[in-house]
Computed example of a mutant assay.
Amino acid sequence: MNPLLIIMLVLLVLSGIGLIVFILLHSGKGTGISDMIASSVYSTQTGTSIVEKNLDRITIALAIVFMLSLIVLMIVYPKGSIG
């Protein structure tokens, strides 16, 4: 196997798994009854905190890595002929 193929496939898989994990870590932005109750009980502040900004940055970076590795694989192997 080509070393470029191995590196790109590893990047694609790791960034895909990372995207799933970090998207699930984001807090919900709902306006339903459960959010009203939770906000009154826990008195959460509106706005983004440092943690949410960092989650956003990591998620965007992982999405860029995922898309770039996907594009590189599409350019290098245009017909899907790996092997």
Results as ranks from 00 to 15, higher is better:
residue 43 S to L: 11
residue 56 D to N: 15
residue 69 S to N: 03
residue 68 L to A: 12
residue 11 L to F: 02
residue 60 I to E: 12
residue 9 L to F: 01
residue 72 V to S: 03
residue 61 A to K: 11
residue 8 M to Q: 05
residue 66 F to C: 09
residue 15 S to T: 09
residue 5 L to A: 09
residue 72 V to N: 01
residue 15 S to A: 04
residue 56 D to P: 00
residue 52 E to I: 02
residue 77 Y to M: 05
residue 30 G to M: 04
residue 78 P to L: 13
residue 20 I to Y: 12
residue 82 I to Q: 08
residue 66 F to V: 02
residue 14 L to F: 08
residue 73 L to D: 09
residue 9 L to D: 02
residue 75 I to M: 07
residue 70 L to A: 15
residue 31 T to K: 04
residue 17 I to G: 11
residue 78 P to V: 10
residue 68 L to Q: 06
residue 73 L to E: 13
residue 79 K to F: 06
residue 69 S to Y: 00
residue 23 I to T: 10
residue 61 A to N: 07
residue 75 I to T: 07
residue 5 L to M: 09
residue 71 I to G: 00
residue 7 I to C: 05
residue 29 K to E: 14
residue 79 K to P: 00
residue 26 H to L: 04
residue 39 S to Q: 14
residue 6 I to F: 11
residue 36 M to Q: 13
residue 21 V to S: 03
residue 55 L to I: 12
residue 64 I to S: 05
residue 52 E to L: 01
residue 6 I to K: 14
residue 11 L to M: 10
residue 6 I to T: 15
residue 57 R to L: 14
residue 31 T to N: 09
residue 28 G to D: 06
residue 77 Y to N: 07
residue 75 I to S: 01
residue 59 T to Q: 01
residue 7 I to H: 08
residue 63 A to F: 13
residue 41 V to A: 11
residue 26 H to R: 13
residue 35 D to A: 12
residue 56 D to M: 09
residue 26 H to F: 02
residue 19 L to P: 00
residue 13 V to S: 09
residue 42 Y to P: 04
residue 36 M to D: 10
residue 83 G to M: 12
residue 43 S to C: 07
residue 64 I to P: 02
residue 61 A to C: 05
residue 28 G to A: 07
residue 18 G to P: 01
residue 79 K to H: 11
residue 38 A to C: 01
residue 36 M to R: 10
residue 81 S to A: 12
residue 34 S to Y: 04
residue 42 Y to I: 13
residue 17 I to K: 05
residue 28 G to W: 08
residue 63 A to R: 03
residue 82 I to R: 10
residue 64 I to Q: 05
residue 60 I to W: 10
residue 55 L to A: 13
residue 46 T to I: 05
residue 39 S to G: 06
residue 21 V to F: 07
residue 74 M to K: 01
residue 28 G to T: 14
residue 63 A to Y: 09
residue 61 A to I: 14
residue 52 E to G: 05
residue 41 V to H: 11
residue 63 A to T: 15
residue 68 L to I: 11
residue 55 L to F: 12
residue 1 M to I: 08
residue 14 L to D: 01
residue 79 K to N: 04
residue 12 L to G: 02
residue 73 L to V: 13
residue 80 G to K: 09
residue 24 L to W: 08
residue 41 V to L: 15
residue 7 I to E: 11
residue 27 S to P: 03
residue 21 V to A: 04
residue 69 S to D: 07
residue 18 G to N: 06
residue 51 V to C: 04
residue 61 A to T: 15
residue 81 S to D: 15
residue 36 M to V: 05
residue 35 D to T: 05
residue 64 I to V: 11
residue 43 S to G: 11
residue 54 N to K: 14
residue 25 L to K: 14
residue 74 M to V: 00
residue 40 S to Y: 10
residue 62 L to D: 03
residue 48 T to D: 05
residue 83 G to N: 06
residue 7 I to T: 15
residue 17 I to C: 07
residue 28 G to F: 02
residue 69 S to P: 02
residue 66 F to Q: 08
residue 10 V to T: 11
residue 11 L to N: 06
residue 76 V to A: 06
residue 4 L to M: 06
residue 33 I to G: 03
residue 52 E to H: 07
residue 79 K to Q: 08
residue 54 N to A: 14
residue 62 L to K: 01
residue 26 H to G: 02
residue 14 L to A: 11
residue 8 M to H: 00
residue 54 N to D: 15
residue 42 Y to A: 14
residue 8 M to F: 04
residue 80 G to F: 03
residue 81 S to G: 10
residue 68 L to F: 13
residue 50 I to S: 10
residue 82 I to F: 12
residue 23 I to P: 00
residue 73 L to H: 06
residue 3 P to M: 06
residue 24 L to R: 12
residue 49 S to I: 06
residue 11 L to C: 08
